[in-house]
Write a protein that binds this DNA or RNA. Sequence first.
DNA 1: CTAACATATGAGCAATTGTTCATATGAAGA
DNA 2: TCTTCATATGAACAATTGCTCATATGTTAG
Lengths: 114, 114
Amino acid sequence: MDICVEKCINEKKVLETIKTIPQPEIISSMADIFKALSDPTRLKIVLALLKQEHCVCDIAVICNQTDSATSHQLRILRTQKIVRNRRDGKIMYYTIDDDHVAALINMSLTHVQH
Amino acid sequence: MDICVEKCINEKKVLETIKTIPQPEIISSMADIFKALSDPTRLKIVLALLKQEHCVCDIAVICNQTDSATSHQLRILRTQKIVRNRRDGKIMYYTIDDDHVAALINMSLTHVQH
DNA sequence: CTAACATATGAGCAATTGTTCATATGAAGA
DNA sequence: TCTTCATATGAACAATTGCTCATATGTTAG
């Protein structure tokens, strides 16, 4: 019944499932969020900002990276609306943009700890 | 006060934050989970399996991919304990491993939809 | 204005990723 | 046994990623 007969497709089940899957653009956007969090350095930035607001140079120190590399990473996180920045004179302060992020991070932490 | 003075580090804030950040291995494991979900094809597989159990060839059809490519992706998801498989004769059925996964996916969907 | 500072950005590159293709494994039927 | 089917896996390669370095912004102080 559920065995792949002819061409190895169980058409009914496949169509049933396809109906429930979001549009490609939605899937792509979701993947982009996960991609933004998939780099250890970027994840460390997010974890740091979950504690408190920081400027770029402080984030660079926390991540043991150059300011330039840090700035590149922050741009990716900004694009995905994961972090937000505000300028105070020469200093640019970064914060977590919304609280879905904290929920995502906590969920993955729970998953890692079995 | 919070301005980067000398070498551009606010040492107190930085140390305060560093104390709260998980161990590198934890961060790395969390990043691996997100990396597994960061590819649109793999994410589509996960979304399909959230609906119901499927065999490799059906997943391949759903994702418009070869069985081989699908198998490679499933291995990555298996390694991250995101999916689980059971054999029934020649057929290998895949399911979502635990319900943290559904929570993660729903959270990212919420984030995408503002 | 100019200089100094914090951050941003583009080019270039090594490392990583996802696919294809060929081959291997494991199970069931003849 | 041999064959077929469903899936897995290794090698190879193009595409993408994250870093470095050089340069460009934007802001403040002199």
